[in-house]
C-alpha cells in the first residue's frame, strides 16, 4: 500500500524532523542483528520459532468475504503469530523521537500495528514478526539515540529525569549503559538479564541530538520560535471550539 508524504507545519529543524519521521524519511545509522533484537525484546529465545496462537491463515479454511479479498494479511498474521510489544522511553533532553512521533511513524508506515502513546513511553503491539520489523527499523535509524532512548517494558521512569553525568538517560534497573564509546544492553525490556551484551552503537553527541530531535525546548529550538506550528495548532483549537458552539 502506498502512502503519500505526510505534511506537518513549521519551519524549524524540529518540524522538518517530525515530517521525516512521519514520512519514514529516516537514515539507517547502525546494524542490529535479528538475534540481538530478539534478545533485547525478550519475548522468545533468540533463534527459536515464533510461537503462534493459531495455525497459518492459509490452513484455517477461512470463509470467503470481501474484506479478506481487499486486505492482504501481514506476514505475522498470515503465520498466526502472537501479539507482542515493543516499548520505548525517550528522554526529554532532545532525544530524536518523541512518543507521538514514534506512534505516527509506526501507524503511517506499517500495517497491523497498534500504537499506544503516553508521556514517558510509547508502545507498539502487533503480531510478533510485524512488531519486530517496526522495532528494528526504529532501533537502527536516526530516530533513535541509544543514549537518550531505551527499550523499556516495565519501570519506564526516566524520560523527564536529568541525564546521568555521562549523558545517558537514567534507568532505574540499569538495562543498558555506556561502556567505552558505545551503549550496551544486557537486560531485556523488563529487566531480565541476557546472556550477552548487545552493542547498540554510539550515542549521539549533544550537537547531533539537537539537530535530530523532534522535541521543542528552549536552548535548542523553542516552540515559540516556530510560529507557523503554533498558529496551525491554534486554528485546530478554534475550529473544534466553534464546531461545538452551535446555538440552534
Amino acid at each position: 500500500m502506498a502512502y503519500k508524504p505526510q505534511y506537518y507545519p513549521g519551519s524549524t529543524s524540529v518540524a522538518e524532523n517530525r515530517r521525516n519521521h512521519m514520512s519514514n524519511n529516516v537514515q539507517k545509522v547502525r546494524e542490529i542483528s535479528d538475534e540481538d533484537l530478539t534478545a533485547c525484546l525478550g519475548h522468545r529465545a533468540p533463534g527459536s520459532d515464533y510461537p503462534s496462537t493459531h495455525p497459518p491463515l492459509a490452513e484455517m479454511g477461512e470463509p470467503d468475504c470481501p474484506i479478506r479479498q481487499i486486505v492482504t494479511p501481514t506476514p505475522g498474521t498470515a503465520a498466526g503469530d502472537r501479539v507482542r510489544y515493543v516499548q520505548w522511553a525517550d528522554s526529554m533532553y532532545n532525544a530524536p523521537a518523541v512518543p507521538y512521533w514514534r506512534s505516527y511513524h509506526a501507524a503511517i508506515n506499517h500495517r497491523g500495528v497498534d500504537p499506544g502513546t503516553l508521556s514517558g513511553r510509547q508502545v507498539v503491539e502487533a503480531r510478533e514478526r510485524d512488531m519486530e520489523a517496526v522495532a528494528k527499523e526504529q532501533m537502527e535509524t536516526d530516530m533513535t539515540c541509544p543514549g537518550l532512548a531505551g527499550l523499556r517494558g516495565a519501570t519506564v521512569h526516566g524520560h523527564s529525569c536529568r541525564l546521568q553525568e555521562d549523558g545517558v538517560m537514567f534507568d532505574m534497573i540499569d538495562r543498558r549503559r555506556l561502556e567505552g564509546d558505545v551503549i550496551i544492553q544486557d537486560k531485556d525490556q523488563v529487566g531480565v538479564p541476557l546472556d550477552r551484551k548487545v552493542n547498540l552503537g554510539k550515542p549521539m553527541t549533544t550537537a547531533e541530538a539537537n539537530k535530530k530531535t523532534t522535541f521543542y525546548r528552549v536552548g535548542n529550538v523553542a516552540y515559540r520560535d516556530d510560529p507557523e506550528a503554533i498558529e496551525w495548532l491554534q486554528k485546530v483549537w478554534e475550529l473544534r471550539t466553534i464546531y461545538g458552539y452551535q446555538p440552534k
Binding site: 517530525r18 526529554m92 518523541v98 512518543p99 507521538y100 512521533w101 499506544g116 502513546t117 503516553l118 508521556s119 514517558g120 524520560h159 523532534t214 522535541f215 521543542y216 516552540y223 506550528a229 495548532l233 483549537w237 473544534r240 471550539t241 464546531y243 461545538g244 458552539y245 452551535q246 446555538p247
Partner: peptide, 26 residues
C-alpha cells in the same frame, strides 16, 4: 502535546483532545 510530543496517557489525552468541542455547547 504538540510542543513536547507527549501529554499524559491514552485516556488523559483523549479527554483533552475532545474537550474544546464541549466547552461552549449548551
Amino acid at each position: 502535546k504538540e510542543a513536547h510530543g507527549r501529554l499524559g496517557f491514552f485516556g488523559y489525552d483523549l479527554q483533552d483532545q475532545c474537550g474544546a468541542t464541549n466547552v461552549f455547547s449548551y
